Amino acid sequence: MRIGHGYDSHIFEKNRKLILAGIEIKSEFGLKGHSDADAVIHALIDSIFGALSLGDIGSHFPDTDNKYKNISSVELLKKTVQIMEEKKYNISNTDITIILEKPKLRDYIDSMRESLAKVLKTDIKNISIKAKTNEKMDAVGRGEGIAVHCVSLLKNIDE
């Protein structure tokens, strides 16, 4: 078993779609970033690479490479899963905490879990997603952006 922690944050930007865990969320703003800026998937990818001691998302999918410009983060997660499987690991479980003031995510949580479970090739019961506010503290609390924490436990396929 190996454990990894991931973190990502992005500021909000008008005239972009808000994509979280591969799901479009109804919102008046999206996240600023080189790819689709899916902070949930970015934190998840970092947790997987962390568990495998393989660096971070930027070392595998650099934002200086135009082939990743506006790419769906689901595609990046699929490539990450391939790497994880080549290393003989898969997801035991993952626990994700999304911190933002708005929009409210309660109605999207199950769809987000299903989306991630499909790409990770695991049961939805192995995916936990929680949405929290930052109680108006700091930039996230002022509604300027989002922060996401993720912890993933990987199990060796051969064990």
Score class of each variant (00 low, 15 high):
E13H: 02
H42S: 13
S128E: 09
S27A: 15
V74P: 00
V148L: 11
K69N: 07
A117Y: 01
K132Q: 11
C150S: 15
K67Y: 09
A147Y: 08
I11K: 04
V40L: 06
R16D: 01
I11E: 01
T122I: 10
H10D: 10
E101M: 14
V151E: 11
I45P: 06
L153R: 05
T94E: 02
S72C: 04
Q82G: 11
K104N: 13
S73C: 15
L31K: 08
G58D: 11
T97E: 15
L77W: 05
K118Q: 12
L76V: 05
K104P: 00
R16T: 00
L31E: 04
T64A: 10
I57G: 00
I48P: 08
P62M: 12
Y68F: 15
I11P: 00
L52A: 07
L120C: 10
K155A: 01
S59A: 10
K67P: 02
G6E: 03
S115C: 05
S35E: 12
I19P: 01
R2Y: 06
G141S: 06
S27F: 03
L20P: 03
G30C: 09
R2M: 07
N134L: 13
K155T: 12
G22S: 07
I96S: 05
S35Q: 06
T133N: 05
K104Y: 07
E24P: 03
A21Q: 06
L54K: 13
H34E: 02
S128V: 07
H42E: 14
D138F: 13
D8S: 15
K88C: 07
E75C: 02
H34D: 02
K102E: 10
D56Q: 09
D158F: 06
E13F: 00
A39R: 04
